[in-house]
């Protein structure tokens, strides 16, 4: 019985990953064999052929845009923004959870979310004029901060009914309740937020590169430059690369979540076994 369920789970898991990948490959094949061009009535100068994009990527770019330089710059912005935004967001959520009177801060932050990112970008450019890189990180950080704080707050405050009372009956201190109950409870919510954050940070980095004056570096700069200047092969190559990076980052968060959940569950099982005693039919 257990073996059957395990193989079914495996098959489901594989399909969940395989089907989207196959769909992506299908789209790429449509593009490669110019079926997309036929379907949408496009010619080469509107949508470059995939083999030319492949040559471009294999060469690492061309005289106008070197891929590694631009990807490194954008990834630096994404990671820094992600880390700073998430840490700050979690910190804000902790403060709001510990001091219920300051809950309004979350509402103010949520208002920040309402600012369209294309307006946020030039504003950050003016707020951090010394370094375009810092301004871009600020955009990514703000876009991460808001979902992280809202979700983490929910994780810290929406507990199972009576669980807090149970711990209080064991004479647990406030710190112990926080560390042993609220913090672990917020972990799934952190991952919900991270999935949003990773995508938002990527968008923030690229839009920031669009609108902030400074060194001509970054995937967003190249895309904007090339698509207007008629260099479609380079522009579309960078669009594809940005898509790929976004997908990989999201997949990384999913894997990280799975690993963390499995580890947390293993710890929970061990703790239960220790208190309740070994199960009789293991």
């Amino acid at each position: 019985m257990k073996l059957e369920m395990k193989s079914k789970k495996l098959k489901n898991g594989m399909l969940t990953v395989l089907l989207p990948v196959l769909f992506g490959v299908f789209l790429l094949l449509l593009w490669r064999f110019k079926a997309l061009h036929a379907l949408l009535g496009l010619n080469e100068s509107q949508l470059p052929y995939l083999e030319n994009i492949w040559v471009f990527i294999k060469n690492g770019g061309d005289g106008t845009a070197r891929i590694t330089v631009n990807v490194k710059s954008t990834l630096a912005v994404v990671f820094l923004g992600l880390i700073i935004g998430s840490l700050l967001g979690y910190f804000v959520a902790v403060i709001a959870a510990l001091f219920p009177k300051s809950k309004g801060v979350l509402t103010v932050l949520a208002a920040f979310n309402a600012i369209p990112v294309v307006a946020l970008a030039p504003i950050m450019g003016r707020w951090f004029p010394q370094s375009a890189q810092v301004a871009k990180v600020a955009i990514a950080a703000i876009l991460c901060l808001v979902p992280m704080s809202v979700n983490a707050y929910r994780g810290l405050t929406e507990l199972k009914p009576y669980s807090q009372d149970l711990l209080k009956s064991y004479a647990a201190s406030k710190t112990q309740i926080f560390l042993k109950l609220k913090l672990p409870n917020s972990v799934p919510h952190i991952f919900t937020a991270l999935k949003l954050c990773v995508v938002s940070a990527m968008i923030g980095a690229i839009i920031g590169e669009y609108y902030i004056s400074g060194p001509m570096i970054g995937i967003g700069k190249v895309i904007r430059n090339d698509l207007k200047g008629g260099r479609l092969t380079s522009g579309w190559s960078h669009v594809l690369i940005a898509t790929l990076i976004g997908a990989l980052l999201y997949a990384a968060v999913l894997l990280f979540e799975k690993y963390t959940v499995r580890a947390v569950n293993a710890v929970k099982t061990r703790m239960t076994e220790r208190t309740v005693g070994k199960r009789t039919n293991g």
Partner: peptide, 29 residues
């Protein structure tokens, strides 16, 4: 992008810099 507007047929004529025209034709236009 004025070159794209002409390529797409949404306009009849465009004003551009010759370098953009060369770049578009190098891309197959």
């Amino acid at each position: 992008s004025e070159t794209q507007a002409v390529i797409n047929g949404s306009v009849d004529i465009g004003v551009t810099w010759v370098s953009n025209l060369i770049a578009a034709n190098a891309g197959g236009a």
